[in-house]
């Protein structure tokens, strides 16, 4: 009868979709194997989170509120999540593999001395847990088991499908145990990036450009198609290293790993390090003028042609279809 806790992340009041994906999966597991699904919320106000958490299957939402949780702080938030685990003893805690979650999960796990498993894409319960996660940037998967009573598991955004399954989701507060805890690293400010409205790692569609775009002045071709698709704009390392776009756009073994529903690679040859970061995308499209480019080996659809001719027409047509 495992009880699964799901960390409900927000950034300045905006709740993260990955939380609803994790709750939906936790609900499916609880319906099959028993146990409860709990939301865990740290923030100034738990009400909006609780309403949505209930909709996606949370039996309860445990919340610690207050100014300490207005901005992310590894020490304070890690202490609070650990305090929750100590008090409520969930069997599994799911934390989204976001910038915040990747920092919080090992921090809380180290405080508890429990297992921490990063960036998982599959959860199996069969008396015990088996956690599936990609390693070597997706060239291979590992099925991991753990020996501690509790494990904190990072979940990759879009690994699970969001579903609705209304439950009470009543809020219960818990003591985050912050008395006497001082943070020696403080977030002083948050600056929004100027480019890229959709975040790469969370996007359902990604359009990436490579050296085939010839120069930085042509990256808007990628951005325009991305915009028409409601997608995030990505890049190969070649054009990041050339300084055409910021590193935050890089997809691959030493950039972001993405697994969107649709990945469109434009003027990208498909080097092994690039494939590592995107080959688990559900549908892959390649647009490349070289029919022998390795990207076609992983693509589901391809156009052998000049991206300068294809992309504007594709952008127009997508705009028409999506209205």
């Amino acid at each position: 009868m495992p009880n699964i806790a799901v960390f409900i992340e927000h950034r300045s009041g905006v709740l993260k979709k990955v939380a609803w994906q994790m709750l939906s999966e936790a609900r499916r597991l609880a319906d099959a194997h028993g146990g409860e699904v709990w939301g865990v919320f740290l923030g100034p106000d738990a009400a909006p989170a609780a309403a949505t958490a209930g909709k996606h299957g949370a039996d309860k939402v445990f919340a610690a509120t207050g100014d300490a949780f207005a901005v992310y702080d590894s020490e304070l938030w890690g202490t609070a999540l650990a305090a929750f685990c100590t008090a409520r003893k969930p069997d599994l805690v799911l934390v989204g593999s976001t910038a915040l979650g990747k920092d919080l999960a090992p921090k809380a796990a180290a405080k508890l001395g429990c297992a921490c498993i990063s960036d998982a894409v599959g959860l199996k319960f069969d008396g015990g847990w088996e956690i599936r996660r990609p390693i070597f940037a997706g060239k291979c998967f590992a099925d991991v088991t753990f020996s501690t009573p509790l494990a904190i598991v990072g979940i990759r955004p879009n690994a699970f499908v969001m579903a609705e399954s209304p439950k009470a989701g009543a809020v219960e507060s818990f003591d985050p145990g912050l008395d006497g805890v001082r943070s020696k690293a403080k977030v002083m400010s948050v600056e929004a990036a100027t480019s890229g409205k959709v975040t790469l790692t969370e996007a359902e569609i990604v359009v990436s450009g490579g050296r085939g775009i010839k120069g930085p002045e042509n990256y808007p071709l990628i951005e325009k198609l991305a915009e028409a698709l409601g997608a995030a704009a990505g890049a190969s390392r070649a054009i990041v290293d050339a300084g055409w776009v910021d590193y935050s756009h890089q997809v691959g073994q030493t950039g972001k790993t993405v697994a969107p529903n649709l990945y469109v690679a434009c003027g990208i040859s498909g080097a092994i390090q690039h494939l590592a970061g995107m080959s688990s995308s559900k549908c892959i499209v390649a647009i490349n003028k070289d029919a022998n480019a390795p990207i076609f080996k992983v693509a589901d659809y391809g156009i052998v042609g000049d991206l300068f001719a294809v992309l504007p027409a594709l952008t127009d047509e997508v705009g028409r279809i999506r209205g």
Binding site: F146, S147, A299, Y301, D306
Partner: peptide
């Protein structure tokens, strides 16, 4: 604290469908 029980290859992908037409 953790043990890898099994390593699995990523799922195989089908062949690429090349879109052909009179112009780009």
């Amino acid at each position: 604290l953790v043990t890898v029980k099994l390593y699995s290859p990523p799922p195989a992908r089908g062949a690429c469908k090349l879109v052909e037409a009179e112009d780009p």
